[in-house]
């Protein structure tokens, strides 16, 4: 099942990229995505039924809107810190604990943390994220865990797990 899903996704990607439906094009695309399927499909999701669940897609769209808004906020934050004459920065690396279990959810959370204001994921060891923060606002682990992961963890848990 997961081989079939991966093959169809690869073929759709090829057709979008070339943007022309003709017989030679479809044959070449099928061959290319067959080779990719044989090599890479074993790293794909275990449970492909999750891909066609409308409730998950709804939460994914909510997550996307929140994420784009925080991206734009992050850019103005960086612009303020860079253009200020004295550069108000107070950098450091903090440790944050997560409750997400699956690998894909952790990858999404790490990418979201990287694009939000002032934070950058350095490493994941066990359940702990190590995060470089450009302006440390508080020294209390409870408060900064909620400030960094709280917003995204809830949405990602809704649509991945």
């Amino acid at each position: 099942m997961r081989y079939l899903t991966f093959f169809i996704l690869g073929l759709v990607f090829w057709l979008l990229l070339t943007f022309r439906i003709s017989l030679p094009n479809v044959i070449v695309g099928s061959a290319a995505s067959l080779i990719c399927t044989l090599i890479f499909a074993r790293y794909f999701f275990e449970n492909t039924g999750k891909l066609i669940n409308p409730r998950r897609w709804f939460w994914f769209l909510v997550y996307l809107a929140v994420f784009i808004w925080s991206c734009i906020k992050a850019n103005f934050d960086v612009a303020y810190r860079v253009l200020h004459p004295r550069m108000p920065i107070k950098p450091g690396i903090v440790k944050v604990r997560t409750t997400l279990k699956s690998e894909f959810a952790r990858m999404l959370l790490a990418n979201s943390i990287t694009m939000t204001p002032g934070t950058l994921t350095v490493d994941i060891i066990g359940d702990d994220f190590y995060i470089h923060w450009i302006f440390i606002r508080s020294q209390d682990p409870e408060i900064y865990t909620r400030m960094i992961t709280g917003v995204f963890e809830k949405y990602i848990k809704n649509f991945v797990e």
């Binding site: 850019n75 960086v78 920065i89 990287t114 694009m115 450009i134």
Partner: peptide
């Protein structure tokens, strides 16, 4: 910015978006 971590952070965010 003063060191490589801060430079990486600012540059990645702004240039990617």
């Amino acid at each position: 910015l003063p060191d490589v971590y801060n430079r990486l952070q600012a540059a990645t965010k702004c240039v990617t978006l």
